[in-house]
Structure formats: structure tokens, C-alpha cells
């Protein structure tokens, strides 16, 4: 099913949806654009936010369960996630969700992840405005979304084309049909034109295909990269596929066991209690980060561990060229 929504009708649609579930969308906060709960703020589809909406599926910090001591024994409580509609997720991030689904879906199945995943409706936005650091098209992860969405938005001059990609998506389109208009063929032409333009922009950039990057991995000077690295962990915190987490307890005798994001760039990540560390140097840890994305994750899931969103480039504190893997000297 495919419909057209005039630009000025978007808030009305979101308000109606908001009555049933929490709507998460890219909104303006100060000069920035970030995904947050929509409560009527202006939507901003111009920029792809630095923090991927995958944080709503695998939060930075979530309660695994509460433990409560009760006459010597413990009672455990879990928290149910709220249903959400995530609007404006771009194709790169949707591809990241596909990788996360595989990782958390392999045995043993991660129930907590899928409780959030199943309660989230993904309304993806075809990407007509790639950021300067984007290279998704070289890795087959954008700018156009083909499948895996519940709803797919394409921004046009006067409104949005909205396609459904699942029964939930179709239901939403049917339920709010009074807001939509019929799709004219010029709209479809405009969609194609916008996407080809985005593709053109992306393809005109230096080639960062898998083979090219794999080649760079073979010759990279990991030690120099390690010497430049300021150990901020930014690359791991913005990557929509990075999913390393730590588990910790807060509170005695009652408290919470939390799952918090972690970073393989930190030396404590792999260091064992006795002090032995299989990845001692910063260089070894950076190398492991790259090989995980281009070799280990593909071996384990069949999907590439990088979607070319370019966030790790702009977040890097050291002046590292993260993808030619060269360090200024």
C-alpha cells in the first residue's frame, strides 16, 4: 500500500499515532537534531542524528531486572518496555537493526532485546540527504530502503510518500486514511529522482567498498593508530551495530541489575580479573574493532558489520582518517 501525506498533515498523523503509542522522531533541540519522544516539536528530517535510533532497541542503560531481598531469598522483577513508533530511521540504521536482529536472535535468543524490538514500529525514511561522511551506497546499505520496514517515508517537495512494508504498517495507513491523498505518478517520479540524486552524491565520493576497506585493513599501521587514539570510545558509542555491553549491580540489599553499553576500545573491556589482557595495546583494540565489523560479524551472521553511516568518522577525537586507515605524521 502506498499513500501521499501533505507536509502540513504530518503533525496530525503523529498526534493520532501518539494516542496509541510513544512516537520517537528526529526533533530539533537547540541547534542539534536528535531522536527523542515526540510531543509536538518540529520534526527535522534534514540531518541524520549522531545517535542512531537503535538506542531505543538496545538502550545505553536498561534494567535487566530488579532484585529484592525477601527473608533470605530474592524476588526478581522485570520492566515491560513501552510500545514505540520510531519515525525517521534511515536505511543505514535499518540495516544495522538487521545485523542486531541476527546477533541477538542467534541461540540463546535475547528475550530482552526482542521484547523491545517487537514493540517497536519502524517508520523508515528514504535518505535523500546523505551527510558528508556517509558511504552507505558502497556497502549496499542505502540510500534507498528495500525491505524490513513497517512504514517507509520518502520526503518530496510538498509531502511524503508513505509505503507499508508489513501488516502493522498497512493497518496504520488504513486506520488514518482520512489524512492521506492519492498517489500521483509525478510523486513516484520525484521519489526516484531524489533517490538517484542521493545515490549519485554518494557514489561520487571516494570508493569505500568492502574490498577496498579489507585491503586497507591488511596494510594498516595499527600501532600508530593506537598511539593517536585518545581512548574516548566515541567510535563504539555512535556505531549503530556496536552492541557491547556491561552488566552491573547497583544497590544492596535491594537494587537493580543493569545492562549498560560498553566499549571494546577500553583496555578494561578484555582485561581479566587477574590482570592478563588478551588485547593489551590500543592498536590491537582498534584492529579488533575493524576486523569484527568486516570479518567476524560477517562470518557469524552473513551480514557486514558496517553500514557506512560515517558516524565514527565525525566523532573521532584523534585526527584519524578512520577509513583510509592512515594517521597523519
Amino acid at each position: 500500500m502506498i499513500v501521499f501525506l501533505a507536509k502540513d498533515k504530518l503533525p496530525a498523523l503523529l498526534s493520532e499515532l501518539n494516542e496509541m503509542l510513544e512516537v520517537v522522531a528526529p526533533v530539533r533541540i537547540g541547534n542539534d537534531t536528535a531522536f527523542a519522544t515526540w510531543v509536538g516539536q518540529p520534526i527535522d528530517f534534514e540531518k541524520n542524528p549522531q545517535i542512531s535510533p537503535t538506542e531505543f532497541l538496545l538502550p545505553q542503560r536498561e534494567v535487566l531486572f530488579k532484585y529484592i531481598q525477601h527473608s533470605g531469598r530474592y524476588v526478581f522483577e522485570e520492566v515491560e518496555p513501552k510500545s514505540k513508533l520510531i519515525l525517521g530511521m534511515r536505511p543505514c540504521d535499518l540495516n544495522a537493526v538487521k545485523v542486531l536482529d541476527k546477533i541477538f536472535g542467534t541461540e540463546p535468543f535475547d528475550k530482552l532485546y526482542f521484547r523491545r524490538r517487537r514493540s517497536a514500529i519502524l517508520a523508515v525514511l528514504n535518505c535523500s540527504k546523505p551527510e558528508e561522511t556517509c558511504f552507505c551506497s558502497h556497502l549496499g546499505a542505502g540510500p534507498e530502503c528495500i525491505d524490513g520496514f513497517d512504514l517507509l517515508f520518502t520526503e518530496l517537495d510538498s509531502g511524503y510518500l508513505i509505503e507499508s512494508g508489513s501488516s502493522v504498517g498497512m493497518l496504520i495507513l488504513k486506520e488514518h486514511s482520512d489524512l492521506f491523498q492519492e498517489v500521483k505518478s509525478v510523486y513516484l517520479a520525484e521519489k526516484n529522482e531524489r533517490i538517484s540524486k542521493a545515490k549519485e552524491t554518494l557514489n561520487s565520493r571516494p570508493n569505500l567498498s568492502k574490498d577496498k576497506i579489507m585491503g586497507a585493513l591488511e596494510t594498516a599501521d595499527w600501532e600508530s593508530m593506537g598511539n593517536n587514539c585518545l581512548s574516548c570510545g566515541g567510535c563504539t558509542f555512535v556505531c549503530p551495530i556496536c552492541h557491547c555491553f556491561n552488566i552491573l549491580d547497583l544497590g544492596v540489599p535491594d537494587g537493580e541489575r543493569l545492562r549498560c553499553r560498553d566499549s571494546c576500545i577500553l583496555s578494561g573491556f578484555s582485561r581479566m580479573a587477574g590482570g592478563v589482557n588478551p588485547r593489551k595495546s590500543a592498536g590491537e583494540r582498534i584492529r579488533n574493532w575493524y576486523f569484527d565489523k568486516f570479518q567476524f560479524i560477517p562470518e557469524n551472521t552473513g551480514l557486514l558489520g558496517c553500514v557506512g553511516c560515517g558516524r565514527c568518522i565525525s566523532v573521532c577525537l584523534a585526527s584519524m582518517d578512520r577509513w583510509s586507515l592512515k594517521v597523519p605524521r
Partner: peptide, 12 residues
């Protein structure tokens, strides 16, 4: 190895 989740997800 350093371990956290014990189920192959946390990557430690």
C-alpha cells in the same frame, strides 16, 4: 576470558 553475559552477546 573476561565474560559478562555468558550467552555470546556482550562481546567481552
Amino acid at each position: 576470558r573476561h565474560m559478562k553475559c555468558g550467552v555470546g552477546k556482550c562481546e567481552h
